[in-house]
Amino acid sequence: MTVAIRATDLVKSYSQGVRALDGVTLEVNSGEVLVVMGPSGSGKSTLIRTFNGLESLDGGALDVLGVPLDATHGERQVREIRKRVGMVFQQFNLFPHLSILDNITLAPIKVQQRAKAAAEQRAMDLLDQMGIREQAYKYPSQLSGGQQQRVAIARALALDPEVMLFDEPTSALDPERVKEVLDAMRQLAKGGMTMVVVTHELGFAREVADRVMFMDRGQVVETSDPETFFSNAREERSRRFLNQMQH
């Protein structure tokens, strides 16, 4: 099995010596869905942002799709990774002055030098896949939060990434909009996409994850299959977290 992401002893410190990442080691295999859970401030978002160079590291070794992203990496590695790793954030980060279609085709045309017609055809196919083809010529402000987040997923997929990163993609949405975004992510997982997902959505983690990794205070507390994690977590910190989330 090919390893897509290999992290060894990652360290990231903020001011006053606070360690956002304190010796994190993990592997993500190609085609695997890893869900990362943990309380606020546990280092989940910092970790996932190191996987595409948005956060720099102070120590440890990180290899993403064969590209080293450790503390000494440069811009060239980051550019290489961002062509191959898609990311979806809490906020949709769409360009308000561009149509939905133009939001999706901007990077393929500018970064990958794709022909406009081919990029637009691919964008329409992705909007179809996300169930929002009819929104192509509207602007972000005319769409609901759930629709905008599905556009953000389509935009990330337009570069044909090998890995998709999701940083709490439903946390800014109204409850009734959460399902449509999770459904789009389920479809991606079924298609064999390698995914790392930071989320508090227990049902999604239970159903879609191959493995669940629980973090607290910058450290990996435990990693297991969803069945074991949700019904028989080993660590007291994990059980306490699940108890709070379920009540």
Rank of each mutant, 00 (worst) to 15 (best):
K110L: 07
G192S: 10
S13C: 05
V28W: 12
S224F: 01
S45R: 06
Q149I: 01
E201Q: 14
E168A: 12
D9T: 06
R122L: 09
G203L: 03
L94Q: 03
K83Y: 03
P226G: 05
V85N: 07
M164T: 09
V196A: 12
D183Y: 07
L165V: 01
N29K: 15
L98A: 10
L106Q: 12
V221N: 12
H73A: 15
R19C: 02
L10P: 00
L69D: 05
Q77R: 11
G86F: 02
V85S: 07
V178N: 04
T25P: 00
V64G: 05
V18K: 14
M130I: 05
M215Y: 11
G66Y: 11
E80Y: 04
E222Y: 05
V196N: 10
A154M: 03
L57H: 01
D70E: 06
H73T: 13
L21F: 05
S141C: 09
G146S: 08
D167W: 08
S30L: 09
T228A: 13
V3W: 10
G192E: 07
D70G: 14
L26Q: 03
G145H: 07
D22R: 07
Y139V: 08
V111E: 06
S40N: 08
A119L: 00
N93G: 00
V181E: 03
Y14C: 01
D58M: 02
L165H: 08
Q219K: 15
R177K: 14
P140C: 04
F92W: 04
P68N: 13
E32F: 06
P226M: 02
D9M: 01
L62R: 11
L188Q: 02
M164R: 09
V220N: 12
I81S: 11
T50Q: 11
R49P: 00
Q129G: 02
V67H: 05
R122W: 01
